[in-house]
């Protein structure tokens, strides 16, 4: 006798929990043949609000984790994803990837997480400076998390894309609220389960599903969002930039080919950092010098 399969419910991910959208709405995710593969939450502006609130609460503590610890947690994400790679391959195939494409996608994603895990305690070293000022002051510039980042994924992006957007943000101590790919949302939610089992504190990454057309506005205009990460080709690009003006959000645009090495790098981390320069006097006393 055939066992009845238990179907998976895809919910959104806010504050380390998996609620349904407060609106109660859903849409059907389709595969390439326009066949429905799952019901997906159609998030509302209130879900954006809730996600931003929880991301704001989580951000400070995440930034104050040691860089080494953040690196460990990112690496842990890679470990968990590796362990569940078969599930992701299957899910990608549900969304019409070939097995080979799906396998490459998952493996690349894992490797990219490991890449950013390694950056956590290094990016600040290679992009900070000690500045030789012409007065008796010690002066240095160092990076500080930009804060809370809103992410709008391109409609047809998938797992590797999501990793490429999210990892540089959280590697740098930011939290984020991400609106997943509208057409390929399954792996985004399953990835949330990975995040939830890999020591990433609740609220650091929040994932909503739904219509970008509906959600770009509340996210881009939200006064408590510090930066946005969007696809340069987004058809809402100009609208998003205009909405971002009110609190001068930094709008960063992705245009790299994410399947290549151009899709990762230091610049993606520093794009979500503020540079802080600190001055302090140096007291020079007496005739003692540092020369021989």
């Amino acid at each position: 006798m055939n066992r009845l399969e238990v179907l998976k419910t895809y919910k959104i991910f806010i504050g380390g929990k998996f609620p349904r959208t407060e609106s109660g709405r859903f849409y059907k995710a389709l595969n390439a043949n326009n066949e429905p593969v799952a019901n997906i939450c159609l998030s509302s502006r209130k879900d954006v609000r809730n996600a931003v609130q929880t991301a704001r609460k989580a951000q400070g503590a995440w930034q104050e984790r040691t860089a080494f610890n953040r690196g460990q947690i990112l690496y842990r994400i890679a470990e968990i994803l590796e362990g569940r790679s078969a599930q992701f391959v299957e899910e990608l195939m549900l969304q019409s990837f070939t097995k080979k494409e799906a396998t490459v996608e998952v493996e690349s994603a894992i490797d990219r997480i490991v890449y950013y895990a390694g950056w956590c305690d290094k990016f600040n070293q290679v992009s900070s400076t000690v500045n030789p000022v012409s007065s008796s002051h010690f002066n240095f510039s160092t990076n500080e998390s930009i804060g809370l980042v809103g992410v709008l994924m391109p409609a047809t992006s998938s797992l590797l894309d999501l990793i490429s957007y999210v990892m540089p943000i959280i590697a740098g101590g930011n939290s984020c609220v991400l609106v997943a790919s509208e057409k390929l949302p399954l792996t985004a939610i399953t990835f949330a389960e990975v995040l939830n089992t890999s020591d990433v504190p609740g609220g650091v990454v929040n994932i909503l599903t739904g219509s970008v057309e509906e959600l770009w506005s509340p996210l881009s205009a939200h006064m408590d969002v510090n930066a946005l990460f969007i696809d340069k080709a987004s058809r809402f690009r100009k609208d998003i930039q205009l909405a971002a003006v009110d609190n001068l959000k930094r709008v960063r645009e992705m245009s790299a080919d994410l399947k290549t090495e151009n899709g990762q790098g230091l610049a993606f981390i520093t794009a979500f950092q503020e540079l802080k320069t600190t001055w302090h006097p140096i007291e020079k006393i007496g005739g003692a010098s540092s020369s021989y």
Partner: peptide, 8 residues
């Protein structure tokens, strides 16, 4: 007393 400030 901060000497650098005094010098300024």
């Amino acid at each position: 007393v901060d000497k650098v400030g005094v010098e300024e």
